[in-house]
Amino acid sequence: MYAYVIRRLFSGLVMLIVMSFATFLMFFNGAVDPVRYTCGKACGVPGVLERNRAMLGYDDPVPVQYAKFVKGVFVGRDFPDDPALRKSAPETIARCDAPCLGYSPKENSTVTSMLAERAPISASLAVAAFIMWIAFGVGGGIVAALYKGRWPDKLIVGTALIFYAFPTFFIGLFLYKFVAIKWELTPQPVYTAFTEDPVAWAMGLFLPGLTLALFYIAGYIRLTRSYVIEAASEDYLRTAKAKGLDKRTILWKHTMRSALTPLITLAALDFAGLLGGAIITETVFNYQGLGKLAVDAATTWDLPVTVGIVLTLSTIVILANIIVDVLYAVIDPRVKLA
């Protein structure tokens, strides 16, 4: 078991290194001067390109830049990267503490602090969406399976498919404009910090969370439904029935357990992916989370922020995969530890 965990961690580490280096190659491959992507419209001001190049160390070869970045992640680093510039313009020195993910001259801020500021918002949204999609998705799937082939089944699966067919931003804007503003059925979907007002936090999260959840619900209903149906037809359940166990016990103690275990893995991975921000939902509802930060950075050319986010999100996915694999091995002894 420990050997498995260690092996899994090691392969995750290799993956992290390869992934981060690949990211660097993608953005700093020399095909296009990356400094042009660090200042947006300020790039036209004389001196800004040169300053940013020296500040971010973009004049180094890619491997050197990568090494400096990795070092920054573990021990932090100072910007400007160029020692001469640090000396001549000490007022611009910014300390970027570990884990340093870079520095944005455009926002005059370290990427780490920008991410830290936005992370709670995306996490809140992820939690809200997760609760709803598990409640509606898994719940709906179970109901559909129990009424297989009858009208509740068709209604649930059909509705989910129809919602899934409309683009997320369309559904989000529709909910925002009609449900929240025109009909005033829900409170304004404005983000309030949990520490400030937990009730307002939850109220504000309802519509964005629902929008995001609707994207996942269709898939989960269908998955749950087919898993439950499959599990219900397994042989040992027939045995249990023959033994005279009552229906309810069979359904909840046996069928559901075996049907829902694989769902946990999937849900955990989807949840982890959402921690990195929901670009479209956050854009529609103006939630200043990681997704909005990412899309803003990408469209206004704030390359250090973009690279920092890509690396963070990919890392979350890799870590989540390791955790899920290990947990799965713990939960389900049948999993081959290979």
């Binding site: 993956m15 690949a22 993608m26």
Partner: peptide, 16 residues
């Protein structure tokens, strides 16, 4: 595995 770790939508916007 590697390809799956990248945040796809973000890459689409960022690399554009």
């Amino acid at each position: 595995d590697l390809t799956l770790t990248f945040p796809q939508t973000l890459m689409l916007i960022a690399l554009s």
